[in-house]
Design a protein around this nucleic acid. Structure first.
Lengths: 142, 142
DNA sequence: GAACTATTCTTGTATATACAATAGTTGTAC
DNA sequence: GTACAACTATTGTATATACAAGAATAGTTC
């Protein structure tokens, strides 16, 4: 009977557990600002576009965990004035989403919080280890 | 102004993304058996106890993603006769949860499915790489 | 250009989840 | 042993999520 190789199995479990561990911690950090991890993720994606609006579909594809509810995530950010949403000029099926000036300001606060959490974690491994980690983990999905 | 080191940031993002990617795939595999990933996880934990019942608390601590709803996960497994639940003799606050013979049989089907998904993924990296991956990723949480 | 198909976002709905509150049991201090 | 605190599982509830269905627009074929 085939048995899963323990070495490989441990690796898989560690990836999943650590991913949850990090996002759980980040969620805790964000809680004081009453913003969810997916909302934070969307804000970061929008900021990364440097002023160029992107569609709901593109946001979904760039999210850490592809979500089927980008519309509703945007709804919440809209209410708080952190993003803008308007019909795409060239294709009225699409929506142009962008981060507002308020969104950028707000994100600065969040980024500080999250970075402060990332820093001590990152200090545990060397830059070479980080590179190795990324390289190996990416191979899994090839 | 402090900027996050890109090498480290990529590593973090890859861990989270890959974790989601794996669990999403596994969830898809399990769907045909109408069982959720957390339910599957609980069954595996129980099987790992080799007949010794464990409490709700212990299950939660062993889960890949610690859940606050173990009771309801157990409820569902109970309905299908895959686990048993009874008051702990020595401490009536606790519950003794165990996997049933049906549960073990059912789990064999699921394990085959999931292993068939794991195998090609694992073949993408060497055993040494898997070990390195586990070692580095564990350091992050130290 | 009409009919059909594909794309894109939104919405409806059922389920899952987090979090807090509760209930029952056990442990502890006096 | 009583009072109080701590522990353990369950339940209530509000929110988040997945998935499918819907609505509007665009593209394609004839």
């Amino acid at each position: 009977m085939y048995m899963e190789n323990k070495t490989y199995f441990s690796a898989i479990v560690e990836i999943i557990k650590t991913g949850h561990w990090i996002t759980d911690m980040v969620s805790q950090e964000l809680k004081e600002y009453d913003i969810s991890e997916p909302q934070f993720n969307v804000l970061r994606i929008l900021k990364g576009q440097k002023g160029k609006p992107i569609t709901v579909e593109v946001i979904a594809s760039l999210m850490i965990h592809r979500s089927s509810n980008v519309t509703r995530i945007i709804d919440k950010l809209l209410i708080r004035g952190l993003v803008s949403r308007q019909e795409c000029q060239t294709n009225r099926r699409k929506m142009d989403i962008n981060i507002t000036a308020e969104g950028i300001e707000f994100l600065k606060l969040l980024d500080k919080k999250v970075t402060d959490f990332h820093k001590p974690m990152m200090s545990k491994i060397s830059e070479k280890e980080a590179k190795d980690l990324t390289r190996i983990i990416k191979k899994l999905k090839e």
